[in-house]
């Protein structure tokens, strides 16, 4: 398949009063047309920062300090703002977490959806209006013609996320970054929005980067999954590989801490400890202090990515040929259930 996005060794720093935060510390992944890559990880693992770096929308105190992001073979980290503006909305678009705040309260939704069409495709207002109404029908907003002129406060959260989706898709982008698009929604609405995004992906052949901390959602949407911890991808593979043959202790912990309907008797599993301070990232494997399988070397040297299969790799010394063979505790946990 054709690779439309390649990220190599991406590093992002933020200057804060407490010091320089190394939010993303060398991230590699790629995305093919029409595929969905989920990036999972807890808050502060750098997943949102990675996505904002791809959009060129880092906060003013953040900057890309290393690595490359290539869109269709073209380097975008060094692009001038003017060039980037042509890319944003037209080739790469983004849906944000909270639909209640991501729409301008004082502008009609029709105007907000058509904005990027007028900008990128140089459509007249009338043409843009027709296309917008069509797009609103595509994202299943009823009475599109009437609702075109309404304001965001006249829509529910789920409807607003559909509007945001329509606005993001207005110019048929090749890549859609979804930054936790369902986190702020009710569970029933979540399913609707995910179904909508999946069906639009099929119709329009979009590559999707789906950022979330909800593993249930991941299982539902992702072709491939990247697990991020402390600014790095610690494991990446197809959804089946990551869910059924996870290799990194952090992935084990993540999967184990997902509550299941059947284990009502046990207490909720959680990973002990808290994520490291990224102003002074620890030596060795950042996850080592929370890892009960950590070895001496984990505290000394950072593990490289070990290849498990063509599509699956993980950064843990446990995969080294000299490492003791450890049975994933997940199997044991699953048996207990």
């Amino acid at each position: 398949m054709e690779k439309i996005l390649e990220v190599k060794g991406l590093k992002v720093n933020f200057k804060t009063q407490g010091g320089t935060v190394q939010a993303v510390r060398g991230v590699d992944f790629d995305l093919c047309a029409g595929e969905t890559l989920a990036i999972v990880g807890e808050s502060g693992s750098g997943k949102s920062v990675t996505s904002k770096a791809m959009m060129g929308l880092l906060a003013s105190n953040g900057s890309i300090v290393g690595g490359s992001i290539r869109y269709n073979g073209k380097e975008i980290t060094t692009m001038k703002e003017k060039e980037f503006e042509h890319l944003r909305g037209r080739d790469i678009a983004m849906i944000f977490q909270d639909p209640m705040t991501s729409l301008n309260p004082c502008m009609t939704i029709g105007h907000q959806i058509s904005e990027s069409m007028i900008k990128h495709q140089k459509l007249s207002r009338k043409q843009a209006r027709e296309q917008t109404i069509e797009l609103m029908r595509l994202v299943e907003i009823k009475d599109a013609e009437k609702r075109y002129k309404q304001y965001p406060h006249q829509f529910s959260g789920g409807m607003r996320q559909r509007i945001v989706t329509a606005a993001a898709l207005a110019c048929h982008p090749k890549i859609l970054i979804c930054d936790e698009p369902t986190t702020a929604l009710d569970v029933t609405i979540q399913a609707q929005i995910i179904d909508l995004i999946k069906s639009l992906q099929k119709k329009l052949d979009i590559g999707i980067i789906f950022i979330t901390h909800d593993l249930g959602v991941v299982a539902n949407v992702a072709d491939r999954v990247a697990v991020m911890y402390a600014g790095k991808i610690v494991e990446i593979g197809t959804a089946d590989e990551v869910f059924y043959q996870p290799a990194h202790p952090y992935t084990w912990g993540l999967l184990a801490s997902m509550p299941s309907m059947s284990d009502s008797k046990d207490e909720l599993w959680s990973i002990p400890g808290s994520p490291p301070d990224l102003i002074n990232p620890p030596k060795g494997d950042a996850f080592a202090p929370r890892n009960r399988f950590a070895m001496q070397i984990d505290f000394e040297e950072e593990p490289p990515m070990f290849r498990i299969s063509d599509t699956h790799s993980a950064a843990t010394w446990l995969l080294h040929e000299y490492a003791p063979k450890i049975q994933s505790p997940l199997a044991e946990l699953r048996q207990r259930r």
């Binding site: 959009m55 929308l57 703002e81 003017k82 503006e85 042509h86 890319l87 944003r88 909305g89 037209r90 678009a93 983004m94 944000f96 977490q97 909270d98 705040t101 991501s102 729409l103 301008n104 309260p105 004082c106 502008m107 904005e115 990027s116 900008k119 990128h120 945001v164 606005a167 993001a168 207005a170």
Partner: peptide, 29 residues
């Protein structure tokens, strides 16, 4: 610093378009 400004920028509007169309108008209220 609000989300809708970030969203407006993600649509590819230029910095000044975002400021004039989305930010200043709302700040005037």
């Amino acid at each position: 610093n609000s989300d809708y400004i970030l969203f407006a920028r993600s649509k590819g509007l230029t910095g000044s378009e975002v400021i004039i169309k989305h930010a200043v108008r709302n700040a005037l209220i």
